[in-house]
Computed example of a mutant assay.
Amino acid sequence: MQWIHATEKPGLGVFKVGRREYEFGAWEPFFVGTSQEPSFDERFTWEGNKDKRIQGYIMCLLKYEYHILDNAFLIHRPGIKSRHSKSKKPIRRQNKQLHDFIRPQIHKLYGKRHACVV
């Protein structure tokens, strides 16, 4: 809640630096990157709630820092997700694929860190 008490400054600046680990392990930040960052894994969908998690998990394993900007905002479209029933079968299939196949591959490439969670 530090941002509530922050004093406003003109222009863009780094407000805080954070990592996607420990209590922030499920954090799915929007970020501006380059072609050097790990690729987004298109095998997962937002319905399974893991669409950005694989990329974030790899970035955690690589100890990426996120520089949080002040005086910046993002509009996410199409907007707020509505609550509707989802089929649990594709979600279970994605989770099984992640834990049985993809995570072991990731660990071979990038190692493991206790601070990082999918």
Rank of each mutant, 00 (worst) to 15 (best):
I4M: 12
H5R: 10
H5F: 14
A6G: 07
E8T: 09
K9H: 10
P10D: 04
P10T: 02
P10F: 03
G11Y: 03
G13W: 15
V14C: 03
V14F: 05
V14N: 04
K16R: 13
G18Y: 10
E21G: 06
E21P: 01
E21V: 13
E23D: 14
F24G: 04
G25T: 02
A26S: 13
W27D: 04
P29K: 06
F30T: 09
F31M: 04
V32T: 01
T34V: 03
S35H: 15
Q36F: 13
E37A: 12
P38T: 01
F40P: 00
D41A: 11
E42L: 06
T45K: 12
T45D: 03
T45G: 05
W46N: 10
W46G: 15
N49R: 14
K52L: 09
R53N: 14
I58P: 01
C60V: 00
L61F: 03
E65R: 14
H67P: 02
H67T: 00
H67V: 00
I68V: 15
D70K: 11
F73K: 10
I75L: 13
I75S: 10
R77F: 15
R77E: 13
G79N: 06
G79T: 02
G79S: 07
K81Q: 11
K81E: 13
S82T: 13
H84E: 15
S85C: 07
K86E: 06
S87A: 12
I91D: 03
R93M: 08
Q94I: 00
K96M: 08
Q97A: 11
L98G: 00
F101L: 10
I102N: 03
I102E: 05
R103N: 08
I106D: 00
H107C: 05
L109V: 09
Y110S: 06
G111L: 02
H114T: 07
A115K: 09
C116K: 03
V118S: 09
